[in-house]
């Protein structure tokens, strides 16, 4: 059974495989990148490495967070080995759901979400959307 690091974005519970998470940081000051795709919230200095930060709310087509809203940075390693920071609302627990609790996302899920959600996990009380980190950080259109 694999473990998932969970977090919430706009009230939904998301998860990514624990192995892909490098670290979780509280809200960071970022450098805005003019002309960048709107999902890119900026660049941050992670101990000398420059990491691109992607706002998951925007990536998932959700409303922007309130200016003083809480946020966390979940730094994940993508398939090509580069680190990318995903900005979520709140960090959750590490869960270990049974392998048979996963299903492909239903067709009715908005395309913007389905594009980056690999599977849906049926937890006891709620659903966890398994985020495909590689797809979540790719395929952005320039502003």
């Amino acid at each position: 059974m694999s473990q998932f690091c969970t977090f919430t974005v706009g009230g939904h519970l998301f998860g990514v495989p624990v192995e892909s998470v490098q670290e979780v940081l509280r809200a960071q000051e970022v450098t805005r990148v003019p002309l960048a795709p709107r999902e890119v919230s900026g660049l941050l200095n992670l101990r000398g490495a420059i990491v691109t930060s992607i706002d998951l709310r925007r990536r998932l087509g959700m409303a922007d967070r309130e200016p003083d809203g809480k946020s966390v940075n979940i730094v994940v390693r993508t398939a090509d080995g580069s680190a990318v920071s995903l900005v979520a609302d709140e960090i959750g627990d590490v869960l270990e759901p049974p392998a048979d609790s996963f299903e492909t996302p239903p067709e009715t899920v908005p395309a913007s979400v389905r594009a980056v959600v690999e599977r849906v996990c049926k937890l006891e009380k709620r659903l966890m959307l398994l985020l495909d980190t590689h797809r979540a950080v790719g395929g952005l259109e320039a502003a």
């Binding site: 000051e29 970022v30 450098t31 990148v33 003019p34 002309l35 960048a36 795709p37 890119v40 900026g42 660049l43 941050l44 200095n45 000398g48 490495a49 420059i50 990491v51 691109t52 992607i54 090509d80 580069s82 990318v84 950080v137 790719g138 952005l140 320039a142």
Partner: peptide, 26 residues
């Protein structure tokens, strides 16, 4: 430092760097 793949299509920047105060500048 090179920009990540999400930003590489932006020709306006040739990269990024970390400034004396630790912030990132393009």
């Amino acid at each position: 430092k090179p920009l990540s793949s999400q930003l590489r299509s932006l020709s306006t920047y040739s990269g990024a760097t970390i400034m004396g105060d630790g912030s990132v500048a393009l």
